[in-house]
Design a protein around this nucleic acid. Structure first.
Length: 768
DNA sequence: GAGTTTGAAACT
DNA sequence: CAGTTTCAAACTC
């Protein structure tokens, strides 16, 4: 507890200092961690934190930067760059150290745990053991994803259980995710991710309450199953090695989120980030608890005392601490650090749990949105994802990572972690989109979101780093779904928009088959410079290609845009032969209908023709099974234009654009899954198969779309019930409001809280 | 897996 | 801004 509190405090301080370089954080963290003496101060700060709701968010943001050394984000959009940079830095640091850390952490943590901690022995023991477990899990995860995977039951239980517990929270706070991702990436992330996935998926279920639980459980099982699949297995295998990498990736991904949060308007960030961080923490904690921890340390008391914000602070701090600790470990390899982390983690979890339960409401709401956004983004990134996505399981799967995570019992947490990371990424992306617009004025590029996700995915992939086959699988199945971006550039050096990775603002990863790739952290300068050049030519080059209905409308002016699938491609397509029925068409690929802006010929875009015909299908499609949607698409959907962009996201479920490609891995890519979960989750979860997601949109549009009106909706959506509605074909807008309300009944309590908390989100949306 | 098609991105 | 070329994804076989 104390440690966690200290960490949190440090994080807060750092956040307050925000501007202060990461070093300060590190130093603080190190000091805090190393010395409990400071803990009182931290505690004091923590206490204060509750008072200051906003700070947490800021903190989260700050934390992120702090946690990560200041590295220039290569891809990050201009505003994001800073954050991303941190990511990269983190990755580098973490990546290398991460493995060592984990290993070291385990040993260290154990040792530390054994070692007398400042905390009471009991607490220490409790915490330490958990921490140890956590670390072990992480390690195991890294080593053996299959570990837990093998035991679905355990996984399911834990996952489901966690999900049930955390789902609401996760669903609610995107921002939290972000912070979490940033900080918690290393350890917490995994757990959180897993939870998130579960949550995202589960949330919808939760709404139903008891039934939800069952469904959740089933979902969890499904997830496990999905993960378990052969596809996953491979990923898992990779994952073992990847675990650490994933952790790093997650961190990186989160970092971006943080950046986004920070980058975004302070307001939004302040609100969301905090929540996100909190959520993250909560998840972690929950996971921790679920996974192994039973303790309810005094921290709970603290947590209770502390406001949700405070909790968020802690979480962030925890996460941050985690990351920091890891860093320290890397740097120093001192057991103390590890111990600190452990403690912090353990503490946090307990606190988080309680807090979460109590406070989660707000966070949840936020989480939900973020989650959605994340998932959506991820999904959006890759149409393929949709296919896969449809199964949330895919989500986990998406992440190749997921497999890994899924593999272990902890796995759940792990999976959650992965998912979480993904989510976080997605969240980040989401935040970015929302925020970016403000920052950049330019529409936040969907890509950014995608990028985020992409980064993750890429990282994940890298982790998997298994041979091309794996890559392919990922590409086909997970990747697409996961939103991971893989490129095959041979001449562009991955420094042009031709490169999907680059276009998405993501570094190329192993999965990529690119030649002479410069889109790597090593070439950050080059990447950034190139990006700037491109942006100088076209400020919107990296902006999301698909825009919400409102935006699109403004741009397009098309009524079609107004259609259910309000989203539209900003520039429109120029298809001549594909009839806008193939992925060649960016509109179709993005899961949006063609608009006035399009110069396409013979438009038959199932999502909406240029002439405006076409919207219809969406609802029906959603309502109907995939087959129907697909059918519509295949058929001519002309009459039935399909899904709106959002839908696309929702639909991400799946319909594979490329019908051929294997269906995405069942395990839904986390993103997809999540996305589906939120929007469609209800459907997807319950009926994933039923959803006929339109082709998974590459673009992040979802977020955008989500952005304004939807944000609230998302919140609503977040709620399981709302989520279901959201998923409803009609989409976001319509259902959300209804759903919003509340469907979430049981879960809802928390959700309701969330709604209240939601305000933070709203701010975000407003920005958009 | 190789080859073709397609349309965006880049270039002129 | 239009036309052409380059490029890599999407698609087909």
């Amino acid at each position: 507890m104390e440690e966690g509190g200290e960490i949190i405090c440090s994080a807060k301080e750092e956040k307050e200092v925000m501007d202060t370089p990461k070093r300060s954080k590190n130093t603080q963290i190190a000091t805090s961690i190393g010395k409990f003496e400071e803990s009182p101060v931290f505690n004091f700060l923590n206490n204060l934190s509750p008072i200051k709701p906003v700070k947490p968010m800021h903190i989260s943001q700050t934390i992120n930067p702090l946690s990560f050394t200041t590295l220039p984000a290569v891809f990050a959009s201009p505003h994001v760059s800073s954050l991303r940079e941190s990511r990269f830095l983190r990755r580098h640091q973490l990546s290398d150290p991460s493995k060592p850390e984990f290993s070291s952490d385990e040993g260290i943590t154990v040792d530390k745990s054994s070692e007398p901690t400042k905390k009471s022995d009991e607490q220490k023991e409790n915490l330490d053991p958990r921490a140890c477990e956590v670390e072990k899990n992480v390690v195991e995860f890294g080593e053996n994803f299959s570990y837990d995977c093998n035991s679905p039951n355990s996984n399911l239980r834990s996952s489901s259980y966690l999900k049930t517990k955390h789902m609401a929270e996760y669903a609610c706070n995107p921002s939290r995710f972000v912070p979490f991702g940033e900080e918690g990436s290393q350890r917490g992330i995994y757990v959180s991710e897993v939870n998130q996935e579960g949550i995202t998926q589960i949330d919808p279920n939760k709404e139903p309450s008891s039934c939800d639980w069952e469904s959740l459980i089933s979902d969890a099982s499904d997830l496990l199953v999905f993960e378990s699949p052969n596809d996953y297995k491979k990923p898992i295998d990779q994952g073992s090695s990847l675990c650490e990498k994933d952790m790093q990736k997650n961190l990186d991904a989160f970092a971006p989120n943080e950046q986004f949060g920070e980058g975004n308007e302070q307001e939004n960030l302040s609100t969301q980030p905090g929540d996100g961080s909190e959520m993250m923490v909560n998840f972690e904690t929950n996971d921790m608890i679920d996974g192994s921890l039973l303790n309810d340390p005094s921290e709970k008391m603290d947590s209770e005392n502390l406001s949700g914000l405070y909790r968020g602070m802690r979480r962030r701090c925890l996460v941050f601490d985690m990351s920091v600790a890891r860093r320290k470990h890397f740097d120093d390899n001192s057991g103390s650090d590890s111990s600190v982390l452990m403690q912090s983690d353990a503490n946090v979890p307990t606190q988080d749990q309680q807090l979460v339960l109590e406070k989660t409401g707000n966070d949840y709401s936020r989480c939900v949105l973020p989650v959605i956004g994340l998932h959506l983004n991820a999904l959006a990134t890759t149409p393929k994802d949709y296919k896969i996505a449809n199964h949330e399981a895919s989500a986990s799967g998406r992440l190749l990572i997921s497999p890994t995570p899924s593999s272990s019992v902890h796995f759940q947490p792990q999976t959650t972690n992965q998912d979480f990371s993904n989510n976080s990424l997605a969240i980040v992306a989401f935040s970015e989109q929302q925020i970016e617009p403000f920052e950049n004025c330019v529409l936040p590029p969907m890509e950014d979101d995608c990028q985020v996700s992409g980064y993750i995915a890429n990282e994940e992939i890298n982790q998997s780093s298994s041979p091309k086959k794996k890559k392919r699988r990922l590409e086909q199945g997970v990747e697409g779904e996961s939103s991971c971006k893989r490129c095959n550039c041979k001449k562009s050096k991955c420094l042009k928009l031709y490169c999907e990775c680059f276009a998405a603002g993501v570094y190329c990863v192993e999965p990529c088959a690119c030649v002479d790739c410069f889109n790597k952290p090593i070439h950050e300068d080059t990447v950034l410079a190139t990006r700037k050049q491109i942006e100088s030519r076209n400020p919107l080059a990296f902006a999301p290609k698909v825009v919400r209905g409102s935006d699109s409308l403004s741009e397009t002016g098309d009524d079609s845009s107004k259609t259910p699938a309000s989203a539209r491609h900003k520039r429109g397509c120029n298809c001549k032969k594909s009839g806008c029925l193939k992925k060649y068409c960016e509109c179709y690929q993005g899961g949006v209908g063609c608009s006035i802006n399009c110069r396409c010929e013979g438009c038959k875009n199932a999502f909406g023709r240029k002439d405006g015909s076409g919207v219809i299908g969406t609802e029906l499609e959603f309502g109907e099974d995939e087959t129907t949607t697909e059918h519509a698409l295949n058929l001519n959907t002309e009459s039935v234009p399909p899904a709106t962009p959002l839908r696309a996201v929702r639909q991400s479920v799946q319909r594979p654009f490329s019908s051929k490609k294997k269906p995405p891995r069942s395990s839904f890519p986390s993103i997809g899954g999540s996305s589906s979960v939120f929007y469609d989750s209800s459907q997807s979860y319950g009926k994933q198969s039923s959803f006929p997601p339109p082709p998974p949109p590459k673009f992040v549009e979802h977020f955008e779309t989500i952005g304004e009106d939807e944000i609230p909706e998302f919140l609503q959506c977040v709620s399981p019930i709302s989520g279901i509605k959201m998923s409803s074909p009609n989409q976001k807008r319509v259902s959300p409001p209804h759903g919003v309300g509340m469907s979430p009944g049981g879960l809802r309590s928390s959700r309701k809280l969330i709604l209240q908390s939601i305000p933070s989100f709203p701010s975000l949306t407003p920005n958009q």
